[in-house]
Amino acid sequence: MKTLDPRDRSAAIAAAIFLLVFGAGFLFLPRAMLYLGTISPYLAAVVGTIFVLAFFVVFWLRARYQRHR
């Protein structure tokens, strides 16, 4: 069995953290939006939009970082 070198291990840990954070976020996002929708539907829309955009911003930032390396 092949062992991971430090870069691969770091990438695997980063991917696991990313999946856990955004997985939990998307799991609780509907409940949070329903709660925020009782305060203001616009607030719920803004929070949902920001969370979904943050998901893609992480990939965009990683692509920029990889391009400069």
Rank of each mutant, 00 (worst) to 15 (best):
R69A: 13
D5F: 12
A12L: 11
V52H: 08
L36E: 07
M1V: 14
F22E: 01
V58E: 06
F55R: 09
I50D: 08
A14L: 09
L34H: 12
L29V: 03
M33H: 00
R69K: 14
I39D: 07
A54T: 10
T3C: 03
M33P: 01
A12R: 12
G25F: 05
L53T: 09
Q66L: 12
L53Q: 01
I50G: 01
D8M: 06
K2D: 12
A54M: 11
K2T: 12
F18P: 00
P30L: 05
M1E: 06
R31V: 09
F56W: 15
L29A: 05
A14C: 02
S10P: 00
A44R: 00
A24H: 03
L34G: 13
M1G: 11
I39V: 14
R7P: 00
L43W: 08
S10G: 06
T49S: 09
Y65G: 13
L4W: 13
Y65C: 10
I39R: 06
V47C: 06
P6Y: 03
A11P: 00
I50H: 03
I39K: 07
G23I: 13
I17W: 02
S10H: 03
G25E: 04
V52L: 13
A14V: 01
T38R: 09
F28Q: 02
F22Y: 15
H68D: 15
L20H: 00
F56R: 08
V47D: 03
G25Y: 07
F59Y: 11
F51A: 04
A32D: 00
P41L: 08
F18T: 03
A15R: 11
R7F: 10
G25V: 04
S40M: 04
Y65I: 13
T3H: 09
T49N: 05
P30R: 12
F59V: 07
R31L: 11
V58C: 09
L36H: 06
I39Y: 08
A11S: 10
A44M: 01
F51S: 02
L27R: 14
L34W: 05
L53Y: 04
A24E: 07
I13W: 02
M1K: 05
G37F: 01
R64C: 13
A14S: 11
G37H: 05
G25C: 03
I17P: 00
A44I: 02
Y65L: 15
I50Q: 04
H68N: 12
A63D: 13
L61M: 10
V58D: 04
K2P: 13
A44Y: 02
V52A: 12
D5Y: 10
I13F: 01
K2V: 13
D5G: 15
A16Y: 00
T3I: 06
M33C: 10
W60S: 07
A45E: 13
L53W: 08
R69N: 09
P30Y: 10
V52D: 03
A14I: 01
